[in-house]
Write a protein that binds this DNA or RNA. Sequence first.
DNA 1: CCAAATTACTTTAAGCCTAAAATGATTCTC
DNA 2: GAGAATCATTTTAGGCTTAAAGTAATTTGG
Lengths: 172, 172
Amino acid sequence: MPAVSDCIKMLDSETKAVETPEDHAEELRLWLRLLTCTTLIEGEVRGRLRQRFDVTLPRFDLMAQLDKASDGMTLSDVSKRMMVSNGNVTGLVERLVESGHLDRRTSETDRRVQVIRLTKLGRAEFRRMAAEHETWIADLFADLTPKDVRELMRLLAKTKASAQKSAARRRT
Amino acid sequence: MPAVSDCIKMLDSETKAVETPEDHAEELRLWLRLLTCTTLIEGEVRGRLRQRFDVTLPRFDLMAQLDKASDGMTLSDVSKRMMVSNGNVTGLVERLVESGHLDRRTSETDRRVQVIRLTKLGRAEFRRMAAEHETWIADLFADLTPKDVRELMRLLAKTKASAQKSAARRRT
DNA sequence: CCAAATTACTTTAAGCCTAAAATGATTCTC
DNA sequence: GAGAATCATTTTAGGCTTAAAGTAATTTGG
Protein backbone atom coordinates (compact mmCIF):
# COMPACT_ATOMS: atom_id res chain seq x y z
CA MET A 1 0.00 0.00 0.00
CA PRO A 2 1.43 3.35 -1.02
CA ALA A 3 2.15 6.01 1.53
CA VAL A 4 -0.10 9.03 1.75
CA SER A 5 2.40 11.28 0.00
CA ASP A 6 2.51 8.84 -2.91
CA CYS A 7 -1.26 8.84 -3.19
CA ILE A 8 -1.24 12.60 -3.34
CA LYS A 9 1.40 12.51 -6.01
CA MET A 10 -0.60 9.99 -8.03
CA LEU A 11 -3.73 12.06 -7.80
CA ASP A 12 -1.83 15.16 -8.76
CA SER A 13 -0.28 13.44 -11.70
CA GLU A 14 -3.62 12.12 -12.89
CA THR A 15 -5.43 15.39 -12.55
CA LYS A 16 -2.56 17.24 -14.23
CA ALA A 17 -2.75 19.72 -11.40
CA VAL A 18 0.59 19.02 -9.84
CA GLU A 19 1.30 21.20 -6.86
CA THR A 20 4.47 19.55 -5.65
CA PRO A 21 7.43 21.00 -7.50
CA GLU A 22 8.41 18.79 -10.44
CA ASP A 23 11.69 17.00 -10.37
CA HIS A 24 14.09 18.49 -12.87
CA ALA A 25 17.23 17.08 -11.34
CA GLU A 26 18.05 15.14 -14.51
CA GLU A 27 18.01 18.19 -16.72
CA LEU A 28 20.09 20.04 -14.18
CA ARG A 29 22.68 17.30 -14.16
CA LEU A 30 22.71 17.26 -17.92
CA TRP A 31 23.34 20.98 -18.00
CA LEU A 32 26.19 20.69 -15.52
CA ARG A 33 27.75 17.91 -17.52
CA LEU A 34 27.45 19.86 -20.74
CA LEU A 35 29.08 22.83 -19.07
CA THR A 36 31.86 20.72 -17.61
CA CYS A 37 32.66 19.16 -20.97
CA THR A 38 32.79 22.49 -22.72
CA THR A 39 34.84 24.17 -20.00
CA LEU A 40 37.30 21.30 -20.02
CA ILE A 41 37.83 21.33 -23.77
CA GLU A 42 37.79 25.09 -24.01
CA GLY A 43 40.42 25.41 -21.32
CA GLU A 44 42.59 22.87 -23.05
CA VAL A 45 42.31 24.61 -26.41
CA ARG A 46 42.93 27.98 -24.81
CA GLY A 47 46.09 26.72 -23.13
CA ARG A 48 47.44 25.12 -26.28
CA LEU A 49 46.79 28.22 -28.37
CA ARG A 50 48.64 30.30 -25.84
CA GLN A 51 51.61 27.97 -25.45
CA ARG A 52 51.99 27.16 -29.11
CA PHE A 53 51.06 30.42 -30.82
CA ASP A 54 50.76 33.01 -28.06
CA VAL A 55 47.23 33.81 -29.16
CA THR A 56 44.01 33.98 -27.16
CA LEU A 57 40.92 31.94 -27.93
CA PRO A 58 38.69 34.94 -28.70
CA ARG A 59 41.25 36.25 -31.21
CA PHE A 60 41.42 32.81 -32.81
CA ASP A 61 37.63 32.57 -32.95
CA LEU A 62 37.33 35.96 -34.58
CA MET A 63 39.94 35.09 -37.18
CA ALA A 64 38.12 31.82 -37.83
CA GLN A 65 34.94 33.72 -38.63
CA LEU A 66 36.80 35.99 -41.02
CA ASP A 67 38.62 33.14 -42.71
CA LYS A 68 35.27 31.76 -43.80
CA ALA A 69 34.16 35.13 -45.18
CA SER A 70 36.62 36.25 -47.82
CA ASP A 71 34.47 39.28 -48.60
CA GLY A 72 34.83 40.51 -45.06
CA MET A 73 32.23 40.95 -42.35
CA THR A 74 30.66 43.80 -40.49
CA LEU A 75 31.15 44.08 -36.75
CA SER A 76 27.50 43.21 -36.20
CA ASP A 77 27.85 40.05 -38.25
CA VAL A 78 30.81 39.02 -36.15
CA SER A 79 29.02 39.86 -32.95
CA LYS A 80 26.02 37.72 -33.89
CA ARG A 81 28.10 34.81 -35.11
CA MET A 82 30.30 34.75 -32.05
CA MET A 83 27.37 35.37 -29.73
CA VAL A 84 29.18 38.12 -27.86
CA SER A 85 28.34 41.75 -27.24
CA ASN A 86 29.06 44.51 -29.73
CA GLY A 87 31.43 46.31 -27.42
CA ASN A 88 33.41 43.15 -27.02
CA VAL A 89 33.99 42.91 -30.77
CA THR A 90 35.07 46.53 -30.97
CA GLY A 91 37.89 45.87 -28.52
CA LEU A 92 38.96 42.58 -30.07
CA VAL A 93 39.09 44.07 -33.55
CA GLU A 94 41.05 47.04 -32.30
CA ARG A 95 43.80 44.80 -30.96
CA LEU A 96 43.88 42.61 -34.06
CA VAL A 97 44.11 45.61 -36.37
CA GLU A 98 46.91 46.93 -34.15
CA SER A 99 48.83 43.67 -34.48
CA GLY A 100 48.41 43.68 -38.26
CA HIS A 101 46.11 40.66 -38.51
CA LEU A 102 43.01 42.56 -39.55
CA ASP A 103 42.16 45.22 -42.03
CA ARG A 104 39.28 47.52 -41.22
CA ARG A 105 37.53 50.04 -43.43
CA THR A 106 34.33 52.00 -43.43
CA SER A 107 31.72 50.83 -45.89
CA GLU A 108 31.36 52.96 -49.02
CA THR A 109 27.61 52.76 -49.03
CA ASP A 110 26.83 53.10 -45.34
CA ARG A 111 29.15 55.09 -43.20
CA ARG A 112 27.89 53.45 -40.00
CA VAL A 113 29.29 50.13 -41.10
CA GLN A 114 32.84 48.87 -40.55
CA VAL A 115 33.97 46.00 -42.76
CA ILE A 116 36.84 43.89 -41.48
CA ARG A 117 38.97 41.28 -43.25
CA LEU A 118 42.02 39.20 -42.51
CA THR A 119 45.23 40.68 -43.83
CA LYS A 120 47.65 38.47 -45.72
CA LEU A 121 49.58 38.01 -42.49
CA GLY A 122 46.41 37.32 -40.56
CA ARG A 123 45.24 34.69 -43.02
CA ALA A 124 48.60 32.95 -43.13
CA GLU A 125 48.89 32.83 -39.36
CA PHE A 126 45.33 31.67 -38.96
CA ARG A 127 45.73 28.83 -41.44
CA ARG A 128 48.83 27.66 -39.64
CA MET A 129 47.06 27.70 -36.29
CA ALA A 130 43.86 26.17 -37.63
CA ALA A 131 45.65 23.14 -39.02
CA GLU A 132 47.13 22.33 -35.66
CA HIS A 133 43.96 23.24 -33.82
CA GLU A 134 42.06 20.65 -35.84
CA THR A 135 44.38 17.89 -34.67
CA TRP A 136 43.90 18.94 -31.05
CA ILE A 137 40.15 18.70 -31.40
CA ALA A 138 40.44 15.32 -33.08
CA ASP A 139 42.60 14.15 -30.21
CA LEU A 140 40.27 15.51 -27.55
CA PHE A 141 37.35 13.61 -29.10
CA ALA A 142 39.44 10.58 -30.04
CA ASP A 143 37.52 8.04 -27.96
CA LEU A 144 34.20 8.76 -29.63
CA THR A 145 33.22 6.44 -32.46
CA PRO A 146 31.85 7.92 -35.69
CA LYS A 147 28.45 6.78 -34.51
CA ASP A 148 28.89 8.58 -31.19
CA VAL A 149 29.80 11.72 -33.09
CA ARG A 150 26.74 11.49 -35.30
CA GLU A 151 24.48 10.83 -32.34
CA LEU A 152 25.92 13.73 -30.36
CA MET A 153 25.51 16.03 -33.33
CA ARG A 154 21.88 15.05 -33.57
CA LEU A 155 21.14 15.46 -29.87
CA LEU A 156 22.97 18.76 -29.62
CA ALA A 157 21.05 20.08 -32.60
CA LYS A 158 17.86 19.14 -30.79
CA THR A 159 19.16 20.78 -27.62
CA LYS A 160 20.05 23.98 -29.45
CA ALA A 161 16.60 24.15 -31.01
CA SER A 162 14.96 23.57 -27.65
CA ALA A 163 17.02 26.26 -25.97
CA GLN A 164 16.38 28.74 -28.76
CA LYS A 165 12.67 28.13 -28.46
CA SER A 166 12.81 28.67 -24.72
CA ALA A 167 14.83 31.85 -25.13
CA ALA A 168 12.35 33.14 -27.67
CA ARG A 169 9.47 32.32 -25.30
CA ARG A 170 11.07 34.48 -22.63
CA ARG A 171 11.64 37.42 -24.92
CA THR A 172 7.96 37.42 -25.81
CA MET B 1 38.56 1.24 -61.14
CA PRO B 2 39.60 3.63 -58.37
CA ALA B 3 41.34 6.88 -59.18
CA VAL B 4 45.03 7.19 -58.54
CA SER B 5 44.50 9.35 -55.50
CA ASP B 6 42.22 6.69 -54.03
CA CYS B 7 44.85 4.03 -54.57
CA ILE B 8 47.38 6.14 -52.78
CA LYS B 9 44.97 6.66 -49.94
CA MET B 10 44.32 2.94 -49.72
CA LEU B 11 47.99 2.16 -49.68
CA ASP B 12 48.61 4.75 -47.06
CA SER B 13 45.80 3.44 -44.96
CA GLU B 14 47.10 -0.11 -45.25
CA THR B 15 50.67 0.75 -44.41
CA LYS B 16 49.58 3.02 -41.56
CA ALA B 17 51.90 5.67 -42.95
CA VAL B 18 49.31 8.23 -43.89
CA GLU B 19 50.82 11.36 -45.35
CA THR B 20 47.68 13.14 -46.45
CA PRO B 21 46.22 15.05 -43.52
CA GLU B 22 43.35 13.14 -41.96
CA ASP B 23 39.91 14.59 -42.18
CA HIS B 24 38.73 15.75 -38.78
CA ALA B 25 36.02 18.05 -40.01
CA GLU B 26 33.33 16.05 -38.21
CA GLU B 27 34.98 16.40 -34.81
CA LEU B 28 35.50 20.08 -35.46
CA ARG B 29 31.84 20.56 -36.28
CA LEU B 30 30.88 18.63 -33.18
CA TRP B 31 33.05 20.88 -31.05
CA LEU B 32 31.55 24.01 -32.56
CA ARG B 33 28.06 22.72 -31.97
CA LEU B 34 28.87 21.80 -28.38
CA LEU B 35 30.27 25.27 -27.82
CA THR B 36 27.27 26.93 -29.43
CA CYS B 37 24.83 25.01 -27.26
CA THR B 38 26.68 25.84 -24.09
CA THR B 39 27.15 29.50 -24.98
CA LEU B 40 23.50 29.81 -25.84
CA ILE B 41 22.25 28.29 -22.61
CA GLU B 42 24.87 29.99 -20.49
CA GLY B 43 23.98 33.39 -21.93
CA GLU B 44 20.33 32.76 -21.26
CA VAL B 45 20.93 31.72 -17.67
CA ARG B 46 23.28 34.65 -17.13
CA GLY B 47 20.69 37.09 -18.39
CA ARG B 48 17.90 35.65 -16.28
CA LEU B 49 20.01 35.63 -13.13
CA ARG B 50 20.86 39.25 -13.69
CA GLN B 51 17.33 40.39 -14.50
CA ARG B 52 15.63 38.38 -11.81
CA PHE B 53 18.13 38.48 -8.95
CA ASP B 54 20.81 40.96 -9.98
CA VAL B 55 23.47 38.32 -9.49
CA THR B 56 26.22 37.15 -11.83
CA LEU B 57 26.65 33.57 -12.99
CA PRO B 58 30.06 33.10 -11.34
CA ARG B 59 28.66 34.26 -8.00
CA PHE B 60 25.74 31.85 -8.40
CA ASP B 61 28.07 29.00 -9.30
CA LEU B 62 30.27 29.64 -6.31
CA MET B 63 27.27 29.71 -3.98
CA ALA B 64 26.04 26.47 -5.56
CA GLN B 65 29.31 24.77 -4.70
CA LEU B 66 29.09 25.98 -1.11
CA ASP B 67 25.46 24.99 -0.75
CA LYS B 68 26.46 21.38 -1.35
CA ALA B 69 29.25 21.59 1.24
CA SER B 70 27.75 22.50 4.58
CA ASP B 71 31.12 22.09 6.27
CA GLY B 72 32.59 24.77 4.05
CA MET B 73 35.30 24.52 1.45
CA THR B 74 38.80 25.80 1.01
CA LEU B 75 39.56 28.19 -1.82
CA SER B 76 41.54 25.48 -3.58
CA ASP B 77 38.59 23.12 -3.43
CA VAL B 78 36.40 25.75 -5.00
CA SER B 79 38.97 26.56 -7.65
CA LYS B 80 39.25 22.89 -8.66
CA ARG B 81 35.52 22.29 -8.65
CA MET B 82 34.75 25.36 -10.68
CA MET B 83 37.70 24.79 -12.98
CA VAL B 84 38.87 28.38 -12.68
CA SER B 85 42.14 29.91 -11.53
CA ASN B 86 42.99 30.55 -7.88
CA GLY B 87 43.22 34.26 -8.32
CA ASN B 88 39.77 34.27 -9.79
CA VAL B 89 38.31 32.65 -6.69
CA THR B 90 40.09 35.12 -4.42
CA GLY B 91 38.32 38.03 -6.08
CA LEU B 92 34.92 36.35 -6.25
CA VAL B 93 35.04 35.41 -2.58
CA GLU B 94 36.12 38.91 -1.62
CA ARG B 95 33.03 40.40 -3.22
CA LEU B 96 30.67 37.80 -1.77
CA VAL B 97 32.07 38.27 1.73
CA GLU B 98 31.68 42.01 1.26
CA SER B 99 28.01 41.58 0.32
CA GLY B 100 27.38 39.35 3.33
CA HIS B 101 26.74 36.12 1.45
CA LEU B 102 29.90 34.34 2.52
CA ASP B 103 31.72 33.77 5.74
CA ARG B 104 35.48 33.32 5.54
CA ARG B 105 37.86 32.20 8.24
CA THR B 106 41.41 30.96 8.51
CA SER B 107 41.73 27.27 9.29
CA GLU B 108 42.70 26.44 12.88
CA THR B 109 45.08 23.71 11.86
CA ASP B 110 46.71 25.25 8.79
CA ARG B 111 47.08 28.96 8.64
CA ARG B 112 47.54 28.94 4.87
CA VAL B 113 44.00 27.69 4.41
CA GLN B 114 40.88 29.82 4.17
CA VAL B 115 37.58 28.07 4.80
CA ILE B 116 34.49 29.68 3.31
CA ARG B 117 30.82 28.98 3.95
CA LEU B 118 27.48 30.46 3.03
CA THR B 119 26.07 32.79 5.66
CA LYS B 120 22.43 32.43 6.66
CA LEU B 121 21.60 35.21 4.22
CA GLY B 122 23.72 33.63 1.51
CA ARG B 123 22.05 30.27 1.90
CA ALA B 124 18.55 31.69 1.91
CA GLU B 125 19.18 33.77 -1.19
CA PHE B 126 20.84 30.90 -2.97
CA ARG B 127 17.97 28.51 -2.28
CA ARG B 128 15.52 31.03 -3.61
CA MET B 129 17.55 31.51 -6.78
CA ALA B 130 18.28 27.83 -7.24
CA ALA B 131 14.62 26.88 -7.21
CA GLU B 132 13.86 29.24 -10.04
CA HIS B 133 17.07 28.40 -11.86
CA GLU B 134 16.03 24.76 -11.98
CA THR B 135 12.82 25.63 -13.77
CA TRP B 136 14.76 27.66 -16.35
CA ILE B 137 16.99 24.73 -17.11
CA ALA B 138 14.02 22.41 -17.38
CA ASP B 139 12.45 24.81 -19.82
CA LEU B 140 15.60 25.21 -21.87
CA PHE B 141 15.84 21.42 -22.27
CA ALA B 142 12.08 20.92 -22.54
CA ASP B 143 12.05 19.39 -26.03
CA LEU B 144 14.39 16.56 -25.08
CA THR B 145 12.74 13.28 -24.19
CA PRO B 146 13.89 11.39 -21.10
CA LYS B 147 15.65 9.04 -23.48
CA ASP B 148 17.43 11.93 -25.19
CA VAL B 149 18.59 13.15 -21.79
CA ARG B 150 19.94 9.74 -20.82
CA GLU B 151 21.69 9.35 -24.14
CA LEU B 152 23.23 12.81 -23.96
CA MET B 153 24.41 12.12 -20.42
CA ARG B 154 26.10 8.96 -21.60
CA LEU B 155 27.75 10.53 -24.62
CA LEU B 156 28.93 13.57 -22.70
CA ALA B 157 30.42 11.34 -20.03
CA LYS B 158 32.32 9.58 -22.76
CA THR B 159 33.38 12.90 -24.23
CA LYS B 160 34.59 14.16 -20.87
CA ALA B 161 36.63 11.02 -20.33
CA SER B 162 38.14 11.29 -23.79
CA ALA B 163 39.07 14.93 -23.30
CA GLN B 164 40.57 14.27 -19.88
CA LYS B 165 42.69 11.51 -21.33
CA SER B 166 43.88 13.78 -24.11
CA ALA B 167 44.66 16.57 -21.66
CA ALA B 168 46.63 14.15 -19.50
CA ARG B 169 48.55 12.93 -22.57
CA ARG B 170 49.66 16.49 -23.29
CA ARG B 171 50.80 17.14 -19.75
CA THR B 172 53.05 14.09 -19.91
C1' DC C 1 66.80 20.75 13.40
C1' DC C 2 67.16 23.12 8.94
C1' DA C 3 67.18 23.98 4.13
C1' DA C 4 64.48 22.80 0.10
C1' DA C 5 60.29 21.77 -1.84
C1' DT C 6 55.53 22.10 -1.76
C1' DT C 7 51.19 24.09 -0.83
C1' DA C 8 47.57 27.77 -0.27
C1' DC C 9 46.57 31.85 -1.33
C1' DT C 10 47.14 36.81 -3.09
C1' DT C 11 48.69 40.21 -6.21
C1' DT C 12 49.53 42.09 -10.68
C1' DA C 13 49.04 43.13 -15.48
C1' DA C 14 46.62 42.38 -19.30
C1' DG C 15 42.84 41.14 -21.67
C1' DC C 16 37.89 39.54 -22.04
C1' DC C 17 33.03 40.45 -21.41
C1' DT C 18 28.60 42.51 -20.45
C1' DA C 19 24.84 45.92 -20.02
C1' DA C 20 23.65 50.36 -20.66
C1' DA C 21 24.26 54.84 -22.37
C1' DA C 22 26.01 57.70 -26.05
C1' DT C 23 27.16 58.96 -30.86
C1' DG C 24 26.57 59.27 -35.54
C1' DA C 25 24.39 57.62 -39.85
C1' DT C 26 20.47 56.01 -42.34
C1' DT C 27 15.67 55.10 -43.19
C1' DC C 28 10.84 55.82 -42.44
C1' DT C 29 6.66 58.49 -42.23
C1' DC C 30 3.95 62.11 -42.64
C1' DG D 1 11.97 67.76 -46.27
C1' DA D 2 11.81 67.45 -41.09
C1' DG D 3 11.31 64.81 -37.14
C1' DA D 4 11.11 60.10 -35.31
C1' DA D 5 12.66 55.70 -35.32
C1' DT D 6 16.11 52.49 -36.25
C1' DC D 7 20.65 50.78 -36.84
C1' DA D 8 25.86 50.12 -36.35
C1' DT D 9 29.19 51.06 -33.60
C1' DT D 10 31.75 53.03 -29.58
C1' DT D 11 32.25 54.29 -24.91
C1' DT D 12 31.87 53.52 -20.04
C1' DA D 13 31.82 51.29 -15.68
C1' DG D 14 32.17 47.31 -13.49
C1' DG D 15 33.11 42.69 -13.05
C1' DC D 16 35.35 38.23 -14.66
C1' DT D 17 39.43 35.60 -16.02
C1' DT D 18 43.95 34.10 -16.74
C1' DA D 19 49.03 33.41 -16.28
C1' DA D 20 52.73 34.47 -13.80
C1' DA D 21 55.09 36.23 -9.98
C1' DG D 22 55.03 36.93 -5.05
C1' DT D 23 54.16 35.84 0.01
C1' DA D 24 53.61 33.04 3.79
C1' DA D 25 52.87 28.50 6.04
C1' DT D 26 53.73 23.70 6.12
C1' DT D 27 55.97 19.42 4.97
C1' DT D 28 59.87 16.72 3.55
C1' DG D 29 64.53 14.75 3.45
C1' DG D 30 68.84 14.81 5.13
